Simulated scan of single mutants.
Amino acid sequence: MKAVLCETLGPPSKLVVRDLPEPRPGPGEVAVRVRAAALNFFDTLIIEGKYQFKPQLPFSPGAEFCGTVAALGEGVTGFAEGDLVAGFPGWGACRETVVVPAAKLVHVPAGADPEQAAGLIVTYGTTLHALADRAKLKPGETLAVLGASGGVGAAAVEIGKLLGARVIAAASSPDKLDFCRALGADEVIDYTREDLKERLKELTGGRGVDVVYDPVGGDYAEPALRSMAWQGRYLVIGFAAGQIPKIPLNLVLLKGCDIVGVFYGKFAEVEAEADRANTARLLGWLAEGRLKVAIHGRYPLERTVDALEALARREIKGKAVIVMEADAAAAR
C-alpha cells in the first residue's frame, strides 16, 4: 500500500510517499481500506513538531478518514468486512490502509457521502462538543464565529444554525464572507476592515453576543470578549493566528461571563461514549441532508503536500480531502 510519511519534522515539502506492506490488525483492531482522509490546520503543525501531540517518526498525517472494513482483529465485534466506517485516529490516515482500535470507529449510515463523512469528525465533532456540550447553546441565542470560513469555523456556522442560533460570521475577505453566507450565516463581518467589537455590538443592538466561537486567537480575542453579553460563553477552540492571547480577567468579572476551553482530542479520549454519540448524531444529519461538509478541494494521495501547503497559506475554505482512488481528480 502507499502511504504519505513524515520521516523528518519540517514543512509539507519534506513529506514522502512510500510503498509499505499491507498492515494486519491486532487484537481489538480493525484494518480499514481508506476511501478518503481529511486534513486539518493542525496537520501543518504536527508534521513540524509544533502540536501538543508528537507521534513517533515516521508517521502519516491525517486525523480522520472514511473507508471500508478490510479485516478484523481478534475479539472485534460490531463490525464486518465491507462495512462503511469513519474514524478519528488523531494521525495516520493519509495512507491506503489504516489500522485503528475498533473503539475509534463508527458506522456511516446509508446516504452519507464518504468524502464528506471523512471530513466530519474533527471539525464538526469539535464544534458540536463546543456548542452543545460546553456552551449549552440555546435556540434564539446569538453566536459569533471567528475564522468562519475555515474548517471548524464553517462547521460552527452550520451547526449553530441547526441548533437554532442567530449566527454572525467573521472572516478576512469578501470571498470568505460570501462562503459564510452560503453556509447560512445571518450576518457577516470583515474583521480586517471593520471594528470587530463595535460591529458585534451594533448587530446585537448593544446587548452583545451570547457565545463566541474562537479558533483564531491573536488580536481578535480581546475585542470579541469585550463584545459579549451578560453571562456569555467564550469558547477557546485554538490559535490559528499563531499567538495565544492574554485576556484581562477583569472583563470576565464585569460581564459575568465564562471562558470555556474546548479540547476535542481529550474529550474523545476520556469521554469516548459521549463522543461516539455526537459523531453518530452528526453522521445522521449528514445522511439526512441537514448539513453538508464544504469540501474546498479533493487531492490524490500523491498531492497531500499541495493540500497541506494550501492549508498553511489559509487558502482552504471548508475542508481539504485526500481521495484514495487511483483515478482521483486533481484538486478543484
Rank of each mutant, 00 (worst) to 15 (best):
A3P: 03
A3S: 13
V4P: 01
V4A: 02
V4I: 15
V4N: 03
C6W: 05
T8C: 04
T8V: 15
T8H: 09
L9P: 10
P11Q: 12
S13D: 14
L15A: 12
V17L: 06
R18N: 02
R18V: 07
D19S: 14
L20F: 00
P21A: 12
P27I: 01
G28F: 01
V32K: 01
R33C: 04
A36H: 02
L45H: 11
I46P: 00
I46F: 02
G49N: 05
F53H: 13
K54W: 13
L57N: 07
L57K: 06
A63F: 06
E64T: 03
L72W: 00
G75V: 02
G75Q: 01
V76H: 02
G78W: 06
G78Q: 13
F79A: 05
F79M: 03
G82P: 06
G82W: 12
A86M: 04
W91H: 13
W91Q: 03
A93S: 13
C94G: 10
R95C: 01
E96T: 03
V98S: 00
V99S: 02
P101Q: 02
A102S: 09
A102K: 00
A102W: 00
K104P: 07
V106M: 03
H107N: 12
A110F: 06
G111V: 09
A112R: 01
E115Y: 11
Q116N: 05
A118E: 02
A118W: 01
I121E: 02
V122I: 12
G125I: 09
T127G: 04
L128K: 04
R134C: 07
P139C: 08
T142G: 04
L146M: 10
G147W: 08
G150T: 13
V152L: 02
G153F: 12
E158D: 14
G160M: 06
A170M: 14
L177S: 04
D178A: 15
F179A: 11
G184A: 11
G184W: 07
R193V: 12
E194K: 10
E194H: 10
E198W: 05
L200W: 10
V209E: 04
V211H: 06
V212P: 01
Y213P: 09
P223Q: 10
L225F: 07
R226P: 03
R226A: 14
S227P: 00
M228A: 09
M228W: 05
M228E: 10
Q231S: 13
G232F: 00
R233N: 08
R233Y: 08
I237Q: 07
G238T: 00
A241M: 06
G242A: 08
Q243P: 00
I244T: 15
N250D: 14
V252W: 11
V252G: 11
V252I: 15
L253V: 15
L254P: 07
L254R: 14
I259M: 11
I259C: 06
V260R: 12
G261N: 09
V262H: 00
V262K: 01
N278G: 02
T279C: 04
L282Y: 12
L283A: 04
A287D: 08
G289W: 03
L291N: 11
V293P: 15
A294Y: 12
I295P: 11
Y299M: 07
L301Y: 04
V305C: 05
A310G: 10
R313H: 10
E315F: 09
E315W: 11
I316V: 15
G318P: 11
A320S: 12
A320C: 12
I322Y: 02
M324L: 15
M324K: 04
A330D: 15
